[in-house]
């Protein structure tokens, strides 16, 4: 790994983003238990390396589709934490104007084309966005993020096949956190490793350590760079673990606390922090500064969300149809 000055700053930024996501999610969990956030709320805690490692490789013309565990993805792409927290709280100032909530973040400016709530349902959409890129002969790529549970639904297979048949630059990025709610791949998948499914679609595929930022970033960077040349779809499986429940409403009876603790020993933020310390990029002082700055940022975001107004009920019908809004 080259450690140029620029590289060091970038790595600190990546580390900072992972810490921000962790603290943001912990605060979101609190706000959920205090009933400021309703509905479903799925946290990225434990999976920060898959989020930041993957998204930090993208350029300004690339497009991202993801599923409902999407808070970290919005933050990593540059969405304002206040607008994301406001969306979780259902406020008019939220990224989706309070219409979407936790599962349906969208930020056109930062190329986040949505968090989606039907498992696997967004994969065909990602194929379509890549089709538009190909149609216009642009050089962007599409990253489509989903969990391992999504590899069992028909939309996954149709999207994978179509992406290959049309030669579209979609990076299918499977964040395998090992639990589709309470089911493990051993129980609901014909093959134990998700990358194997990509072989059926003649797609280059790789399994990577989803707890290790560098593993995720380097593999994703290689894939994205290769796709920029080949304009062919690729598949990555990041093997990771969620430290919290599937959603906030999850008693966790399907796994042992010992297992959770074992995985927490490979906390992706601590792993990256230690590595940066070893390389002399991060020291205790800097780490504390980052923690403090992130805490303040999350508090600002929380205050903004809580103080923001709810959408007007008079505007209930706004955004159903385009022409009525114009």
């Amino acid at each position: 790994m080259a450690t140029t000055t620029e590289n060091k700053q970038q790595l600190l930024d990546n580390y900072r983003m992972m810490v921000l996501i962790r603290h943001f999610e912990e605060r979101a969990a609190q706000l959920y238990t205090q009933a400021h956030i309703g509905g479903y709320c799925h946290l990225n805690i434990g999976e920060e390396a898959t989020v930041v490692g993957a998204l930090s490789t993208l350029g300004p013309k690339d497009i991202v589709f993801t599923a409902y565990r999407d808070h970290g993805h919005a933050l990593a792409l540059g969405s304002d934490p206040g607008a994301v927290m406001a969306e979780l709280c259902g406020k008019a100032t939220g990224v989706s104007k309070g219409r979407g909530g936790s599962m349906h973040l969208f930020d056109l400016e930062h190329r986040l084309y949505g968090g989606y709530g039907i498992v696997g349902g967004h994969l065909p959409l990602a194929v379509g966005a890549a089709l538009a890129i190909q149609y216009r002969e642009e050089d962007g790529v599409v990253m489509c993020i989903f969990g391992e549970g999504a590899t069992n639904i028909g939309a996954f297979h149709e999207a994978m096949n179509m992406a290959k048949v049309y030669h579209l630059p979609v990076l299918f990025f499977c964040a395998n956190n090992q639990y589709a709610m309470g089911s493990m791949p051993e129980e609901d998948s014909a093959v134990p490793e998700m990358w194997m499914k990509a072989c059926a679609y003649d797609m280059a595929a790789e399994r990577i350590d989803g707890m290790d930022f560098f593993s995720v970033r380097e593999a994703t960077r290689r894939a994205v760079e290769r796709m920029r040349e080949t304009r062919e779809p690729m598949f990555l499986e990041a093997f990771t673990y969620r430290f919290r429940g599937h959603s906030m409403a999850d008693a966790g009876r399907y796994r042992s606390q010992d297992e959770v603790r074992e995985w927490q020993r490979r906390d992706p933020i601590q792993l990256l922090g230690r590595r940066l310390e070893e390389d002399g990029i991060l020291d205790t002082r800097t780490r504390e500064d980052i923690e403090k700055a992130v805490d303040e940022e999350v508090e600002r975001a929380t205050r903004f969300a809580l103080e923001s107004p709810s959408p007007e009920t008079d505007d209930l019908y706004q955004y159903v149809y385009t022409e009525e809004d114009e």
Binding site: I63, L125, I133, A155, E158
Partner: peptide, 20 residues
């Protein structure tokens, strides 16, 4: 397109979101 109605209309939706 392949016999994949979900992917066909889904690709249409994604392409429409991207401006086509």
């Amino acid at each position: 397109a392949p016999i994949s109605e979900t992917a066909i209309v889904g690709a249409g939706i994604g392409a429409a979101m991207a401006g086509l």
